[in-house]
Simulated assay, not measured.
Amino acid sequence: MEKPAEFNMRGAGERPTVALSGDWTANNLGDAPTRLAQAVKVRGDVAVDIRKVRRLDTAGAYAVIRAVGHDYDLKTVQARPESERLLELVGAAVRVEPVTVRQPRGFHELTVRIGKGVMNVGYEWVDTLAFLGHLLVVVVRTAIYLFTEPKRVRWAAIFTLAERAGLDAIPIVAVTSFFIGAVVGLLGANMLRQFGAEVFAVELIGIAVLREFNIIITAVLLAGRSASSFAAELGSMKMNQEIDAMKVMGVDPFEALVLPRFIALLLTIPLLTFVATLAGLFGGLVVVWSVLHLGPTFFLQRIVDDVGAVHFWVGMSKAPVMAMVIAGIGCRQGLEVGGDVESLGRRVTAAVVHAIFAIIMIDAVFALLFMKLNV
């Protein structure tokens, strides 16, 4: 049974003694610390006896130290060994002086921020290499499963994610590509009309859509749609410690969560790129037909004769690379989420921004490569 904290003064000599009793814990202190401090202040120098205290925690020890003063010699307190040790620990903590850290200002602050940024880039690079290495191991292991144990491959997750990330995105990809093709056709017709070469708007539309805009529009839309979704899903699981639970149960999160998303985008981005190609060409056809009064047969014949299939395959060759980049960035940012909602928001935003930046940079690299190959 718990007893409230109490004390009594005894002795009226040069140094009276204050004897504590009961439970000096956070739940039982009451107003005892205040009365003790007043009594010690009135009597002056007193001795402290806490041998009859039943239970003592850090709150009770701090109350005793505050009552007798921080500069009081705790070694003169009469106490059991465990109580004496607790008083020493709390007293040492009370006597610690707070350290004031000067915040950098001006040029110093700028150099600190630059240094932290450089270090963060290094950490991100190392983490990315670790992510790629782990993913490569899982890919090889899954490839072995395809021939030895096909049932171990998570086909249900792959096709579910492919439907959600691919088939559900067909309308938005098609509509966006249609208007992009229409805009390219309208701009091309207006500019080429000045030179009397309106007919070449067909080649402009074909090359622009087949070579660049089909894959760029598809990849950017999936970066905002799928990369953010992957980061939010995995980040939420990380916050709820579901990924840690999977590791405890012996399930590899890369095999269960990351790889299905990679395969799903690898399967769907070529399909979406083909849909974007058809929609973009149709948008250009509508503009050429309505503005230049050139019929669909003429449009398609010039696409086949003058543009050809090379540009189509150039655009399609970028699709697998874009799929790996979008899935990798989204999954990696999701796995880096901390334990708070702010971290989740930062990582989801970073997934979209990094994916779009990577798409533009990779497309530029492809453009330089095909230019060197004269393709």
Rank of each mutant, 00 (worst) to 15 (best):
M246C: 06
L271S: 04
V101A: 12
A223C: 04
K372Q: 13
T268D: 07
F159Q: 03
A143P: 03
A157C: 11
A256L: 15
Q38I: 08
I362T: 11
F370S: 06
G11M: 08
A93W: 10
P296V: 05
L344K: 01
F366A: 14
V365C: 12
F299R: 05
M191Y: 06
L259G: 01
L210H: 00
S177R: 03
V310Q: 15
A355D: 04
G106H: 07
I215Y: 09
A37S: 11
D31Y: 08
I263D: 04
A197Q: 13
A174L: 06
V375N: 05
T268A: 15
G295M: 13
E109A: 15
P253Y: 02
V348A: 00
K3A: 15
L186F: 11
G44Y: 04
R154C: 03
F7T: 00
R346K: 11
I356N: 13
V304F: 15
L257E: 03
I144Y: 14
D49A: 10
W24V: 03
K41F: 08
A227T: 02
V288S: 14
G69N: 09
Y123K: 06
E163W: 12
I362M: 15
A279S: 12
N190V: 07
E242I: 02
M322T: 05
R66V: 09
I269F: 07
K372R: 11
F7V: 00
V307D: 11
G250T: 04
V137R: 10
A350W: 02
P253Q: 04
M361N: 06
M322K: 09
G11P: 03
D340S: 09
R102F: 13
R302A: 11
W289L: 13
I170H: 07
V140D: 06
V121F: 09
V140R: 10
W313G: 03
D73W: 01
V77E: 07
N190I: 09
F159V: 07
R332F: 08
M246Q: 06
T17Q: 15
I216D: 13
T277E: 10
R154L: 15
R80K: 14
V173D: 00
A165E: 06
G11D: 08
L300I: 10
F357H: 00
T160K: 14
F274D: 01
W24K: 04
P4R: 05
K116G: 14
V94M: 13
L86M: 09
D168A: 07
